[in-house]
Amino acid sequence: MVDSDMSVDKSKKTYSTGAFFFLAPAVVVLLAVGIFPLIFAVGVSFHQFLLPKVHWHGNFLGIWPIYDAPLTWFQNYISIFQDDSFRDALSRTFLFLIIVLPCELVLGLVIALLLHQQGNELLKKICRVALVIPMATTFAVVGLMGRLMFDANYGILNSIWGFIFHFRPDWLADPNLAFLSISIMEIWQWTPFCALVLFSSLTMVPAEIEEAAKLETAKWWQVLWRVQLPFMLPGITAILILRTADILKLFDVVYIMTKGGPGSATELVSLFVQRVGFRAFDQGVASAQAIILLIIATLLSRFYIKFVYKEV
């Protein structure tokens, strides 16, 4: 007994020193490429930093670039709060989220139930493969597809629309329709994700319980509500979290389909910050906006992680 206890102690000791060597490379690299730039961004956000005007004055300790940008402390942050455009971009992003996410969830649930339903086995197999295609398509290419299909003159969707309703709107030039177009492409790309997540949740309902419930009540929606839904809750929570995070990050599809236009009708927050930083060259304000965005995302993810990722 004493012997085995000692060996456990000994192995524990080697374990924790071992952990250091296993973890150190990954942690060091992530600190260098992930965290160091963030700290630098905080520095930039306190300066008036117009890219064409600032000059480089060498590096502090060899790693921290020094510029002659005037230190203005919180001026960039104050100007962001005084100006409506950043808040507008944020609320536009949340509006997008509120429109798109319920559609994805409901359509995803319908497809998941179709896949769960007995019969048509071959078609269900094909369907599961087909669902992978939208998710796997390079986001930039989804944007290209959207541009092609929503084109005012020869886009296929517009042709179908024109055939049914006898007029052809210019989807990407009208503010509301452009917003709708990017929403449709987002729903097209990510509904399959919801469907597959919810489908795998459905398969976790024990068959006996489901059959017993079906015997008891004839109404499918009662089975869905009372028996299947509890099993889907973790999946639904995961979807809510990950889609929220991804929509806050959303850039590629919209950048290619509309570049935020017409006007700023489809300018989601990532596009907005990108424009301020790289097309208006105001790195100071853009960095401050990025820091605010980071704070929002961190708060959301803390909140979310508490909900879902409890176990290690």
Binding site: L30, V33, G34, F36, P37, L38, F40, A41, V44, P65, L242, A245, L248, K249, F251, V269, S270, V273, Q274, G277, F278, Q283, A286, S287, A290, I291, L293, L294, A297, T298, L300, S301, R302, Y304, I305
Partner: peptide
């Protein structure tokens, strides 16, 4: 939490560095 961070947040400073 790296999953939650928007790439634009890292892209700005990384560009300057």
């Amino acid at each position: 939490s790296n999953r939650m961070i928007s790439p634009i947040v890292v892209a700005l400073p990384f560009f300057l560095i």
